[in-house]
């Protein structure tokens, strides 16, 4: 038998590699396929199919009824808008404030920096669930400038869903780690050229922070988009509720599984799109920066 030529060997290797990649992809994608396929089935069939491979196949009584019903049950467009609004504002503000703080930690010398940095990392340890109640009391006693002058209490508003979550220690930490790895000469050279600190931050560091901006943005996006416990505690009006709260609308005496799957599919797609959009930016920025080495 003739041994494979080098070229064929390479082809085989690449083929194997793709086979492996596809196999892994199936492991990651199957619950999502299950979700989307189930959203097309009536409840009874969905529950019966869930025990067999039919769960992954759009077979049987397929329709978009669940979507129609879900739209009827939940004011989805309103919720959708609310989530987009709170999420976009939070992501933008988070990128700005966290990167700015991290820049200060990474490049500027000031007293107490090390202590503050370790305190920030320590706050990352506190799970949200354990401070939700005291946080509620804090926001309830804060002032806000409303249409009728200064009001006390932030409940039932957009800002109560946004402001407490803008700064987060993980975000600062991620930026800090990234900035610290950048070569010091970058900043020093700019200084010698007479650039101000603000210019260094906006014109030199931020433009090459693409990958970490994308990472923090995705993280913040997910946290805000999936917000669940907090809006339940602070939002009274349907006009202000975010989209994940809508999930609760389906757990009635008889749980509407098909509608839940439909709703979840609708909720999940924007996040996937957001990730896809950012992923491209993220790859491109890496390709074009080539800053290291």
């Amino acid at each position: 038998m003739r041994s494979l030529s080098f070229e064929n060997q390479q082809r085989l290797l690449i083929g194997l590699r793709y086979a492996l990649l596809i196999l892994i992809a199936m492991i990651f994608i199957f619950p999502i396929v299950f979700m989307v396929v189930s959203s097309l089935k009536p409840d009874m069939q969905l529950l019966r199919d869930s025990g067999s491979l039919r769960a992954f196949l759009p077979v049987g009584d397929i329709s978009l009824d669940n979507y129609a019903d879900a739209f009827e049950r939940v004011p989805m467009l309103q919720f959708f808008f609310n989530s987009v609004f709170t999420t976009v504002v939070s992501v933008a503000a988070a990128l700005w404030l966290n990167s700015m703080a991290a820049f200060s930690f990474a490049f500027l010398q000031w007293r107490g920096k090390a202590l503050v940095l370790s305190l920030i990392i320590a706050t990352f340890i506190v799970p949200f669930e354990v401070i939700a109640i005291p946080l509620l009391m804090v926001v309830n006693s804060l002032p806000w400038l409303g249409p009728g002058g200064i009001e006390i209490g932030w409940l039932n508003s957009y800002h109560v869903q946004i402001i407490p979550f803008i700064a987060d220690s993980l975000g600062i930490f991620l930026f800090y780690q990234y900035f610290r790895d950048l070569p010091d000469e970058l900043v020093e050279a700019a200084r010698i050229d007479g650039a101000s600190i603000w210019q260094i931050y906006t014109r030199i560091i931020m433009p090459i922070a693409g990958p970490i901006l994308a990472t923090v943005a995705i993280l913040k996006f997910l946290g805000m988009w999936n917000a669940y416990i907090w809006p339940l505690m602070t939002i009274r009006s349907e006009e202000l509720r975010p989209i994940m709260v809508g999930l609760q609308y389906f757990f009635q005496l008889n749980t509407a599984w098909g509608e839940i799957m439909a709703y979840l599919s609708v909720v999940t797609i924007p996040v996937l799109l957001f990730y896809l959009a950012l992923q491209r930016a993220f790859i491109e920025s890496i390709a074009t920066s080539g800053i290291k080495g």
Binding site: A101, I120, T123, V138, A167
Partner: peptide
């Protein structure tokens, strides 16, 4: 400037977390 740049994030973390 270092303090000023870190301040917004630090204030928010203090009020809403610490």
């Amino acid at each position: 400037i270092g303090w000023l740049m870190a301040a917004p994030a630090l204030i928010i973390l203090t009020v809403f977390l610490v």
